[in-house]
């Protein structure tokens, strides 16, 4: 069952909140260099999966395997040090910290100052608006800018894999396009990405593979091409209700 070539594989993951079973035995995997998207309606359990992978909520069953190591149950700070990070739903930038400080803290796990500065100029080049706003408080940025900052902040730790939780949430369509272009550029620079989305069309456009989650279980999986060609995604979505 376990995929040896996978950078991250999740096997039979269960997440519970008290009596509620939000995720009921989900399997998924992400290989080096891929964009994999995890789709599903509101409340399907997408964030629960990402939060459990990162150790923010307890893993009630199953395994989370990163580069061959079972990291299930480890605290988030330890998992980040292993090279996996999450850009959380709703961006959650540190509003009372400046843009520059938000980026600095993203690199808190790294010791080499020169290398950190190299990543920082990399990110400021990729997200030029952040360079313009570097001394502004993050709370004063627009939603799209905050999303860019949240992604850049995650990339400051030079993760092997980054989990993005609904980067399009609450953003105008034009801004969403920009964000998705940036995600593709990140992949082109070698990033591996697990992308949680409700924007099915756009997500399948940039992803290599996809999974559809309905009521806490994987209802459908396949290559992005297969998924967008068939009408099954819509049907799996409907199945959630």
């Amino acid at each position: 069952m376990s995929n040896e070539a996978a950078l991250l594989s999740v096997e039979g993951l269960v997440v519970r909140y008290g009596a509620i079973e939000a995720v009921r035995g989900a399997d998924l995997s992400v290989r080096q260099g891929e964009i994999v998207t995890l789709l599903g309606a509101n409340g399907a359990g997408k964030s629960s999966i990402l939060n459990a992978i990162m150790g923010l909520v307890p893993v009630a069953g199953g395994r989370v395997v990163l580069e061959g190591n079972d990291v299930g149950g480890e605290p988030p700070e330890k998992i980040v040090r292993r090279g996996m990070t999450l850009t959380p739903e709703g961006r959650r930038v540190f509003a009372n910290l400046t843009v520059a400080e938000n980026l600095s803290i993203g690199a808190a796990t790294r010791r080499d100052r020169a290398e950190v500065e190299a990543t920082r100029s990399d990110m400021l080049e990729l997200f030029p608006i952040l360079a313009e706003r570097r001394d502004q408080l993050a709370g004063t940025l627009s939603g799209g800018e905050q999303q860019m900052l949240a992604i850049a902040r995650s990339m400051m730790s030079q993760p092997k894999i980054v989990l993005l939780d609904e980067p399009s949430l609450g953003l105008a369509p034009q801004i969403v396009d920009t964000i998705f272009e940036l995600i593709v550029r990140l992949r082109d620079r070698g990033a591996t990405i697990l992308l949680v989305e409700q924007n099915v069309e756009l997500a399948l456009e940039i992803a290599d593979r996809g999974y559809v989650l309905a009521s806490g279980a994987i209802a459908l999986e396949g290559s992005a091409r297969e998924l967008s060609a068939s009408g099954d995604v819509e049907r799996a979505y409907m199945g959630a209700h």
Binding site: M54, L56, P75, P76, E77, V80, R81, T85, L86, P88, R92, F94, A95, N96, L97, E101, S104, I105, G106, A108, T109, R153, S157
Partner: peptide
């Protein structure tokens, strides 16, 4: 200092501060 910035971050959003690799 990084630890100082981390403390200010923790006062705003503790879980996300941990996502930065900072030990709670």
């Amino acid at each position: 200092s990084t630890l100082g910035i981390a403390m200010r971050a923790a006062s705003l959003d503790f879980p996300v501060t941990r996502l930065m690799g900072i030990n709670a």
